[in-house]
Nucleic acid binder design. Structure first.
Lengths: 141, 141
DNA sequence: TATTGTTATACTCTATAACTATA
DNA sequence: TATAGTTATAGAGTATAACAATA
C-alpha cells in the first residue's frame, strides 16, 4: 500500500532500491555476529585466498586502499585477521582460528540470504539473475 | 583483468556491486548539473506529483523524515523547490521555474543512463530486467 | 494520540590528497 | 618511478531519539 512511485520502471533506480533493501536485510542478520556485509565479504575473500594483500583485496572489491585500513584494523583488533609481512611493504592477510570460525558463521548466514534472494525470483527466470546482474554491472563488450 | 572474485556467483553481492558501479556512473553524469542521483530522483518525483509533502516523499523513497530535511533545504536554498503550507504542519513541495528546468535536464541524463543500462543486457533477456529486479526487491508474496 | 517537520547526533561507506617506506 | 600501506579529511547516505506544533 505504498504511495505511487513513478521511478519503478527504471532499471537503475530499481537496482539501487533492491540493493539498499536487501543489504539492510543482510546487515540485520549479520548483526548477531557483530559484523556487516562489508566484513562478511572480506572474510569470505580472505578465507578463499589466504595470504592476499590489502591492495589485492582493494582491487577485487574496487575500493580505495585508504578505506581498507580501518576495516583491517578493526578486524585485527578483534582477533579475526592477522597481517604477515611478505615483502617489506606488502602484508598478507590470513584469518585466525577465531576468524575462521566467524567466517563459517558469516558464510552460513550469507548463503541462506543469497538462496532466499534467488527464491524470490520466479523459477523460470532464476537462471538469468546472475547473467543479467553481471551484464548491468559490466557489459561483455 | 581484475583478480578473481569468489563472490561473483552471489546475486546479493552482484546486486550491490552493480548498484554501486552504475550509481557512480550516474553521479558522474549528473555532476555537470551540480546534483546527484538522490536529487534527480527527488526532482522526478516532485515534478510528477507536485504538491506532495515531505512525509509522502519519505514514504515513497523509504527514507527517514529526518534525512529529507537537509535535502529539501539544500534544493530550496538553490531556488529549485518551494514549500507551501497546506496544513499547518504539512508542506506541499513544488518545483520552481528554475527547478522545472533543472528537472528537464536531469531527466534527460537519467533517461539516457537508464536506456544504456538496459542495452547492456542481451536483447533476449531485456524484458526480464524489471521483473527480476522487482522480485528481488519485493517478492510478490 | 498520531503525524509533520525539525534538531542533534552518530555510523557506514566512499573519495582525495599527501606522506613513508619500500620495490 | 611505481607500489603498499597509512594518515587525515570530507562528503554522502542512513539511523535513532527527542522535541514542538498541529491534527
Amino acid at each position: 500500500m505504498r504511495p505511487d512511485d513513478p521511478l519503478l520502471k527504471l532499471p537503475g533506480y530499481l537496482l539501487r532500491r533492491a540493493s539498499a533493501a536487501t543489504l539492510a536485510e543482510l546487515n540485520g542478520r549479520l548483526a548477531k555476529l557483530g559484523i556487516r556485509h562489508t566484513d562478511a565479504a572480506f572474510l569470505i575473500l580472505v578465507a578463499g585466498q589466504p595470504g592476499l594483500t590489502q591492495s589485492e583485496a582493494c582491487r577485487i572489491f574496487e575500493m580505495q586502499r585508504a578505506n581498507m585500513v580501518p576495516l583491517v584494523a578493526r578486524l585485527e583488533r578483534r582477533g579475526v585477521v592477522e597481517r604477515h609481512r611478505v615483502d617489506g611493504r606488502s602484508q598478507g592477510l590470513v584469518l585466525t582460528v577465531t576468524g575462521a570460525a566467524l567466517h563459517q558463521r558469516a558464510r552460513r548466514i550469507v548463503e541462506r540470504y543469497e538462496a532466499e534472494l534467488l527464491r524470490r525470483v520466479p523459477a523460470k527466470w532464476r537462471a538469468l539473475v546472475l547473467p543479467i546482474l553481471t551484464a548491468l554491472w559490466r557489459p561483455a563488450r
